[in-house]
């Protein structure tokens, strides 16, 4: 049985609006996503750098990328991806 992506951590630059709770809620409403954690790394006049950790089963990264684009956010890098039967940590 294929488990797909179970966890992904993203480095994202977003505009200050919409605020973090709104983005987190919207991300968590994507199918197969069980939980979202957004941490603020740096704040600027118009933008925020954030780390977004998403957990679930068979996460569709393309849907996440599309949502980010819709919300005026840019994924700088995918910092972590976990796939498989077991959640492996470094």
């Amino acid at each position: 049985m294929q488990h797909g992506v179970r966890r992904v951590v993203l480095d994202v630059l977003k505009l200050r609006d919409p605020p973090l709770p709104e983005l987190a809620m919207r991300l968590s409403s994507i199918p197969n996503i069980d939980g979202v954690n957004i941490s603020l790394v740096e704040i600027d006049q118009n933008t925020e750098s954030v780390k977004i950790a998403i957990e679930g089963s068979n996460i569709n990264i393309e849907k996440i990328q599309k949502l980010m684009k819709d919300y005026g956010a840019v994924i700088h890098s995918i910092d972590e991806v976990v796939v498989g039967k077991k959640m492996v940590t470094i």
């Binding site: 505009l15 609006d17 600027d44 006049q45 118009n46 933008t47 684009k69 819709d70 005026g72 840019v74």
Partner: peptide, 16 residues
Amino acid sequence: RELEESMLEDLDDSLH
């Protein structure tokens, strides 16, 4: 335009 400059990205397809 100011937001686009801050993001270094085109916001044409965004909700903004």
